[in-house]
């Protein structure tokens, strides 16, 4: 009896092990793609309908054109970046590791020399290593554009969709994620744009302290609309910005999106989104992947995508864009050309 049981156990164990060995290589694998990409997102995570989702869009677009598979992690805090990057690098299976967001720069400058054969790219920051390609954007220029738009509209009597301006007061608002040089450069450009349009206009600003604090974004924007009489609020705050749109809808005012055309990615709020300061993170990711596929990845270089390269742009809202007066659009288009020609100097610091 005892022997039977022992034999049964041994048999089961052997069958189990064989089963594991057989199954592990089976379905659910990544498949055998030519190129594998690891994505490490910024702390806002996927579903922010802006920055991270744009980066993901880039790799999804690339997957349609190339034989490619990708894997992604969403670190919850800055202390996890180092491990997340290293998990991908350590496996050695990835042809490119995409680090989304400036907060990953510290971790990457430690990891890049450690894995010299591994290609990395980083968005929004510069890491000077031979195996890292850095992409930075002309955020101040793009923010200047939407600032110009906001400055022109705040003085006019303008109603469209679910919002209207308050022509008696020339106040516009800015909601930022965290106080950092990058986000402050959005604010600096925005303020310069508003001032360019209207020297008397006032810009109120607030930093919520996080990129995924929707409730915080909502209360910050609500305070601007209600207490400070702002009628247009621009956000550079990832998912926190969704709260800004909610507040705009509640108060019947306008908001300006960031990173992608948020009137398209958030159709529920299309009736208050005047425009979006689009930052083509997807283009950056796509072009880096393309260079890896074509075997001409240029590490150690920094690519700046500004207004001229269409890395940043003012894109009018899907629903409200047609109702914005043509003379306003013309003026914004003129300032764009003036920035490209170097006639307007956009500050990048407050």
């Amino acid at each position: 009896m005892v022997r039977d049981r022992r034999r049964f156990l041994q048999g089961t164990a052997a069958a189990g092990l064989a089963g594991i060995a057989g199954c592990v290589g089976g379905f659910g694998d990544e498949g055998s793609s030519d190129v594998r990409v690891g994505m490490v997102y910024a702390t806002g995570g996927l579903g922010d309908d802006s920055f991270n989702d744009m980066a993901r869009q880039g790799v999804v677009n690339a997957r349609e054109d190339f034989d490619l598979s990708f894997n992604e992690t969403e670190p919850g805090s800055a202390s996890e970046f180092d491990g997340a990057q290293r998990d991908f690098a350590e496996s050695g299976d990835y042809d490119l590791i995409t680090c989304v967001g400036f907060a990953q720069a510290d971790a990457l400058s430690g990891n890049a020399p450690e894995y010299p054969e591994q290609n990395f790219m980083i968005i929004d920051s510069v890491v000077e290593e031979d195996n890292v390609r850095s992409y930075v954007f002309g955020e101040p220029e793009g923010s200047f554009q939407v600032g110009h738009l906001a400055g022109l509209l705040t003085d006019q009597e303008f109603a469209a969709g679910a919002g209207e301006t308050n022509p008696d007061e020339s106040v516009v608002g800015f909601v930022g994620g965290v106080e950092s040089p990058l986000i402050e450069s959005f604010q600096a450009g925005f303020e310069a744009g508003v001032e360019y349009a209207n020297e008397d206009a006032e810009v109120v600003s607030s930093y919520v302290g996080g990129f995924n604090d929707t409730a915080g974004g909502q209360s910050a924007a609500r305070a601007m609309y209600q207490d400070q009489n702002a009628d247009i609020v621009f956000h550079a705050a990832g998912r926190t910005g969704i709260g800004v749109f909610q507040a705009a809808q509640d108060e019947g005012r306008f908001a300006i999106g960031v990173d992608d055309d948020q009137s398209v990615s958030n159709p529920d709020f299309a009736d208050v989104i005047l425009a979006s300061m689009v930052k083509r993170v997807d283009t950056a990711v796509y072009s880096a992947i393309e260079s890896v596929v074509n075997d001409n990845f240029a590490g150690g270089e920094t690519e700046t995508l500004g207004l001229e390269e269409e890395g940043v742009a003012n894109v009018y809202g899907d629903e409200l864009g047609d109702e914005i007066p043509q003379d306003v659009k013309d003026q914004v288009a003129e300032s764009r050309q003036a920035i490209i020609d170097g006639e307007i100097d956009v500050p990048s610091e407050l």
């Binding site: 594991i20 592990v24 089976g26 379905f27 659910g28 694998d29 990544e30």
Partner: peptide
């Protein structure tokens, strides 16, 4: 949704529990 999965009775099962526990 995935590209390589186990097709079973009209469904595609993407995740392999064995691989996950491995």
């Amino acid at each position: 949704t995935c590209r390589t999965g186990l097709d079973l009775a009209g469904w595609t099962f993407c995740y392999n529990p064995m691989q996950v526990y491995y």
